[in-house]
């Protein structure tokens, strides 16, 4: 048995991500899920604006790019026009939790049958590491050189907690890509999010905590440690909403 790690639904192209950026791991998990479900031929991806804007180079799928933050709206249109297709949006925290908040919340409230992979690295990565809505209190960024001041800038947005309060979504989970154990859990969650769409269960969002060694000013190894020590305690991992589980329980 060969254990290679490039899924069939990814291209041979080398990614442009910085060394140690876990975007590459999350791309692979998405590819693995699509391979496992055998939906490569009918999957359409929507790339965001952000570091993963070039995701269409890396996925061997039909891909498009939405205006900043509007990936859930574009995905909604794609899914409604082609109900047989499997549509996913791959968004960062600057895209989904900031400019695209309205689109994400309303897509969830409408229970659109789409899958969103939400990559949260707590900074605006592509533009050089400015403070994002998800930056942690006290976190050093380009625009908060003394640490995020919560009196001035407010507190971070916890997307999973917020969306799980809505009646609409079918599946909301938060996972992390910082250790083999967490990557395996992330793989399961992402696969479930895609399977929900195949089975018509509705809106599924998986938030994946990711590292940004370059903009955090840390080595790749220290960035993963920082996720463990600082980020995961603030953004607890787990399944926040799962309507299929409730059906089993009741």
């Amino acid at each position: 048995m060969s254990k290679t790690n490039k899924p069939h639904s990814m291209t041979e192209t080398h990614t442009h991500y910085c060394p140690g950026c876990t975007h590459g791991i999350i791309h692979r998990l998405v590819g693995d899920a699509i391979d496992a479900l055998g939906i490569e031929e009918r999957t359409i991806g929507v790339a965001p604006v952000g570091c993963s804007v070039l995701a269409y180079n890396y996925f061997n799928l039909d891909m498009t790019v939405a205006a900043h933050g509007r990936a859930p709206a574009v995905a909604t249109g794609l899914k409604r026009a082609n109900p047989e297709s499997i549509v996913f949006a791959y968004q960062g925290d600057g895209d989904l939790a900031s400019i695209g908040m309205a689109e994400a919340v309303h897509a969830a409230a409408r229970n659109e049958n789409i899958t969103i992979i939400f990559v949260n690295n707590a900074v605006y990565g592509m533009t050089g590491g400015q403070m994002a809505p998800t930056s942690l209190p006290g976190q050093l960024t380009q625009t908060s050189p003394n640490g995020r001041d919560v009196d001035l800038c407010g507190l971070p947005v916890k997307v999973c907690e917020m969306l799980s309060q809505l009646d609409g979504p079918a599946y909301i989970a938060r996972v992390a890509a910082n250790s083999p154990k967490n990557v395996i859990a992330a793989k399961r969650a992402i696969e479930k999010a895609f399977r929900n769409q195949v089975e018509g269960k509705g809106f599924s969002l998986v938030e994946v905590l990711s590292s940004c060694p370059t903009n955090w000013g840390k080595s790749p190894k220290d960035a993963l440690k920082w996720m463990d020590s600082t980020m995961i305690p603030y953004y607890p991992l787990g399944v926040y909403k799962d309507t299929s589980r409730r059906e089993i329980d009741s």
Partner: peptide, 19 residues
């Protein structure tokens, strides 16, 4: 031991483990 942890954590799909 061919556990594949390196494969899981590689962001660049560079490593292959056969077992």
């Amino acid at each position: 031991t061919k556990c594949g942890f390196c494969v899981l954590m590689c962001p660049d799909c560079a490593i292959t483990v056969e077992r």
